[in-house]
C-alpha cells in the first residue's frame, strides 16, 4: 500500500518540518495576576500569614510575581517568592512548575502527596501528573490565556477553591 506509506511520510514530515516548530507564549504579567487571584481565592486548612510561592524551573513568571507581591504585602498576609528544588517543594504553599520543568512534576506530587500545596503548572493538561491548576493558551479563542482546574487534585490536598476560580476554569480530571 504505497498510499499508506506516503500518508505516514506526510504526517511525520509535517511533524518535523521547520514550520511545525512553532509555539505561542503566555504573558507572564497576565499569569502573575492569575496566580495572585488563585492564592486569594484558595482556602488552606490553616490560615496563612505568609504565603510561600516556590518556583521550579526557569520562568519569567518568577520576576513578575516578585514585582507584584512586593506591592501586595498587607498587614495580614505577606508573600515570598523563591526558586526551589523538587525536594524543597514540601516547604511551599504554592508550587509553580515552569513549562520546561514539568518532567519534575510527578516527583513533586509524590513528595508532597496530601500536603496542602497548590501546584500550578505552566503547561496544559498536567492534571494527571498531579497539578491542581494548569495554564493553557486557548487556540480556539485568539490564544487567550486560560486555566484548567483539577478539582480532584485540589481536594486531595485539603484545599478549597471558591467560585471565582471554579466558574472560569476548564475542568479536568
Amino acid at each position: 500500500m504505497n498510499l499508506i506509506r506516503l500518508l505516514i511520510l506526510l504526517i511525520f514530515f509535517g511533524l518535523f518540518s521547520p514550520a511545525a516548530a512553532y509555539c505561542q507564549h503566555m504573558d507572564p504579567k497576565e499569569n502573575s495576576v492569575y496566580v495572585y487571584n488563585f492564592i486569594k481565592y484558595t482556602t488552606w486548612p490553616k490560615k496563612k500569614n505568609n504565603v510561600v510561592v516556590g518556583i521550579v524551573g526557569n520562568t519569567p513568571l518568577e520576576g513578575e510575581l516578585q514585582k507584584l507581591f512586593s506591592r501586595k504585602t498587607s498587614s495580614s498576609v505577606s508573600y515570598s517568592v523563591k526558586r526551589i528544588t523538587t525536594t524543597e517543594a514540601k516547604n511551599a504553599d504554592v508550587v509553580i512548575v515552569a513549562a520546561g520543568a514539568t518532567d519534575q512534576l510527578r516527583e513533586i506530587t509524590a513528595q508532597t502527596a496530601h500536603m496542602p500545596i497548590l501546584i500550578i503548572s505552566e503547561k496544559e493538561s498536567m492534571g494527571h501528573a498531579g497539578a491542581c491548576i494548569c495554564f493553557y493558551l486557548d487556540e480556539e479563542n485568539d490564544y487567550k490565556t486560560g486555566y484548567q482546574l483539577s478539582v480532584r487534585n485540589v481536594h486531595a490536598r485539603g484545599l478549597q477553591v471558591n467560585e471565582q476560580i471554579l466558574n472560569n476554569a476548564v475542568l479536568i480530571r
Partner: peptide, 19 residues
C-alpha cells in the same frame, strides 16, 4: 501587573487576547 492586580479572574478571562 501592578495595574492589573485589582482585576478578578473573571475580568482577566474577559480581557482581550493580545494575539
Amino acid at each position: 501587573s501592578v495595574d492589573l492586580s485589582g482585576m478578578s479572574i473573571e475580568d482577566l478571562s474577559k480581557m482581550r487576547s493580545k494575539y
